[in-house]
Design a protein around this nucleic acid. Structure first.
Lengths: 195, 195
DNA sequence: AATATAAATGAACGTTCGTTCTTTTACAAA
DNA sequence: TTTGTAAAAGAACGAACGTTCATTTATATT
């Protein structure tokens, strides 16, 4: 019996993401992917049931990786400020290290395709739930609805990252995202979240 | 000579946006649009040069409308808190009144297609620039880089709206976005932005 | 009422799409 | 070294794609 070639599998995943980031979902096709990954179109159907399956598997993998990276060195007993800052730094690291993965993820999240993909990340969610409850009990965090918490705690972060990835020049000045400018923003958000 | 039927034009615009919001860019095709708008495929090419032109014109129109709505009742001489709050309220009004337009806009903004579309909104940008400078001079707003300002001042807003539009149930509770929950979030952001 | 002209049509173009077929190839187990 | 089996390939399928064409229809102007 013959074994699957992991190089091929990786090439398929990598080229699929690159293509989607560069050309969007309507610029992505199985035949183009096969060609760019130096593989027969039929081979794609050994690894994936069909186009939709390919996309949703890719999304789930990236989402899982992103969630794992976000929680590196984190535990829910940390002080609120330290725990949140670790997550911001981790997420920035992921964005800088795997910009293509992140862009693919963001594009997918904003498309209707995301609804067809059953995702859970239950470990991540339970970790965060505990973290937030602890922080409120310790008086480090205002009591608020979870949606408001997520929006304030991460909305600015993602907005900032988006500026960085678009390499936008606003008002003539050039903006570079690094740990320092991230910390400046983080401190403002901490001020907002304190009781 | 025969005149263009504005009803047809509106049906094309409306159905195009609905289709993209429901099925994404790769679910959108000229033939399906023609059928859903009760129009011949050839008719689409009277109104638009091609598919790409249709999409980018649609995006520009929605973006312009959104920017106009955001500045209703606004002027750069307002106090920072009042001026920003007016914009939050205006944006919420747009989201609630034209959810399809907004979803289309957000989906487009997160796709690579946005790079091909030359947009300016110079009036909006100059208004905001003046507003921010005034606020800093009056001591109502911390000095900060423009990208950080935009991220903090609007990042939470958009994150909150996204929760609302996905009608997500987080942690068992059901979240409804209204002017009250918006104001709660706004007050936290104001705290973050104050010197 | 006649005419000119642009809107609107339906059928059709060649191309590319997602997917499947049959055949060949490579490798683990015997 | 032989054999079994799944990986991998390339050609091909019908369907759908974006777009164009020749023709018909409606209306503002004469």
């Amino acid at each position: 019996m013959r074994t699957k070639d992991e190089n091929k599998a990786a090439a398929i995943r990598e080229n699929a993401m690159k293509m989607i980031v560069a050309e969007g979902f309507d610029g992505f096709s199985m035949q183009k992917l096969a060609k760019s990954a130096s593989v027969s179109p039929a081979t794609l159907y050994i690894y994936y049931k069909n186009r939709e399956d390919l996309l949703s598997q890719l999304f789930n993998e990236v989402q899982q990786t992103f969630a794992d990276v976000a929680l590196e060195g984190f535990n829910p007993e940390l002080s609120f400020e330290e725990g949140l800052w670790i997550q911001w730094k981790n997420r920035l690291k992921f964005v800088l290290e795997y910009p293509t993965h992140f862009c693919f993820y963001e594009q997918f999240r904003n498309s209707p395709l995301v609804n067809n993909s059953g995702i859970h990340l239950s470990s991540f969610k339970e970790n965060m739930k505990l973290f937030v409850i602890n922080a409120i009990q310790k008086g480090e965090l205002k009591m608020m609805e979870p949606e408001i918490f997520w929006s304030v705690a991460y909305g600015s972060f993602y907005a900032l990252v988006k500026f960085h990835l678009q390499e936008t020049t606003m008002m003539g000045k050039n903006f570079k995202l690094n740990e320092e400018s991230l910390k400046t923003t983080f401190d403002m958000i901490i001020k907002a979240l304190k009781p």
